[in-house]
């Protein structure tokens, strides 16, 4: 838990790598280091990007130099030994199955249980947002009950509708916008996950805890209409 290494990534990025495993405590430390680096607004730093167990700093090598960025990273990694939790709990309504969750039956077959049980397992847990990536506002949530941890589809869909809720291995997530995607889709969330026009564009942030609440098709229609 204490160990970390500094890794060079080309000439314009450096990464702090913590223990390479998906673990809330390791992730919390990465998020704390990332938040400290972002708050420090070091000259020449363009982006600070947290992963499950890494923090990557992208910089302009003409405005700062790699030794200075390395020192900034080392200081942050040493100081942020504790984990500062971003906190925040978000409940997201999901209409499971039917046209909104075309793969629900397949996940049930994989798990060897009924579709209702898949819904109960998926909506019965509280998930951690480990990181955002893949698409603007896309949150990698973990971990699902191992029984429903179905691997990615062998061939990805060219179009996954915005709001789709999917599973890929132990991960689950909500597609913030229409995109190609290989996750098995079990439902759809009617509320917007990402709207870049809003003052607060992102509903989910790394460190948040997320619960899914099953809703009916009728409730889905009502809520989806209330969103812009």
């Amino acid at each position: 838990m204490d160990g970390w290494t500094l890794t060079r990534v080309g000439d314009a990025a450096l990464a702090v790598e913590f223990e390479q495993r998906i673990d809330p405590a390791v992730n919390a430390r990465a998020l704390a280091v990332g938040a400290a680096l972002r708050a420090a607004r070091h000259a020449g730093v363009l982006d600070v990007v947290e992963g499950f167990c890494t923090v990557t700093v992208v910089f302009d090598p003409l405005r700062t130099d790699v030794r200075r960025v390395a020192a900034e990273l080392e200081t942050a990694a040493e100081r942020q030994r504790g984990s500062v939790e971003a906190g925040g709990e978000v409940a997201l309504p999901v209409c499971y199955g039917g046209p909104h969750g075309p793969d629900l039956e397949q996940v049930a077959a994989f798990a060897g249980c009924s579709a209702d049980e898949v819904v109960a397992l998926h909506s019965g847990a509280v998930y951690r947002v480990y990181m955002l990536g893949f698409l603007p506002g896309f949150a990698y949530l973990g971990s699902v009950e191992p029984r429903i941890a179905i691997p990615r589809r062998r061939s990805p869909r060219l179009r996954v509708p915005a709001g789709s809720v999917g599973i890929a291995g132990l991960q689950t997530g909500v597609y913030p916008l229409e995109a190609p995607g290989g996750w098995h889709l079990i439902g759809r969330c009617p509320v917007g996950i990402c709207d870049l026009e809003r003052a607060e564009p992102f509903r989910l942030r790394a460190g948040h805890r997320v619960r899914f609440e099953p809703i009916t098709e009728a409730e889905y229609s009502l809520q989806v209409e209330s969103e812009p």
């Binding site: 990534v9 080309g10 314009a12 990464a15 990007v49 992963g51 499950f52 890494t54 990557t56 992208v58």
Partner: peptide
């Protein structure tokens, strides 16, 4: 590998 940030040019 566990997903992490990737830069341009990778």
């Amino acid at each position: 590998l566990i997903s992490c940030a990737v830069p341009t040019g990778a």
